[in-house]
């Protein structure tokens, strides 16, 4: 449990980048983002709704992502999130930064 909390703190710092990565593979609505993160991490990381929407609001505010209404015929309309050109760049930069930090940490830890 203790280990899990520590790692989730470490992971939380990269939620924005995780979302950018997901959206670079296709537009998604809120719950899909949560579900994909859960699935892609083999259920090792559970992204909370509140954490996801914090990140999404932040990304939207920085023009890294945009949103549009889906055309669901049944039930309520969904808000789909879509990565922008700026977001695609940010994703590449963040990913490179992580790779760089990871190399150093691998040597040091």
């Amino acid at each position: 449990m203790y280990k899990k909390n520590i790692s989730s703190d470490l992971l939380r710092g990269h939620v924005d980048t995780m979302i950018l990565r997901l959206l670079s593979e296709g537009d998604k609505y809120g719950y899909e983002i949560v579900k994909c993160i859960n699935k892609n991490s083999n259920s090792q990381y559970e992204l909370k709704e509140a954490t996801m929407y914090s990140a999404v609001r932040r990304l939207k505010n920085d023009d890294e992502i945009d949103w549009y209404w889906g055309d669901e015929t049944q039930g309520g309309r969904r808000k789909y999130y879509k990565i922008t050109e700026k977001g695609k760049n940010t994703y590449i930069i963040n990913k490179n930064n992580w790779q760089y930090a990871k190399d150093i940490l691998d040597k040091l830890l």
């Binding site: 949560v34 559970e46 909370k48 709704e49 509140a50 954490t51 914090s54 609001r57 932040r58």
Partner: peptide, 11 residues
């Protein structure tokens, strides 16, 4: 699955 909404509201 909601989590802590305080930070989200601040955001």
């Amino acid at each position: 699955t909601i989590g802590d909404i305080q930070q989200m509201v601040d955001e």
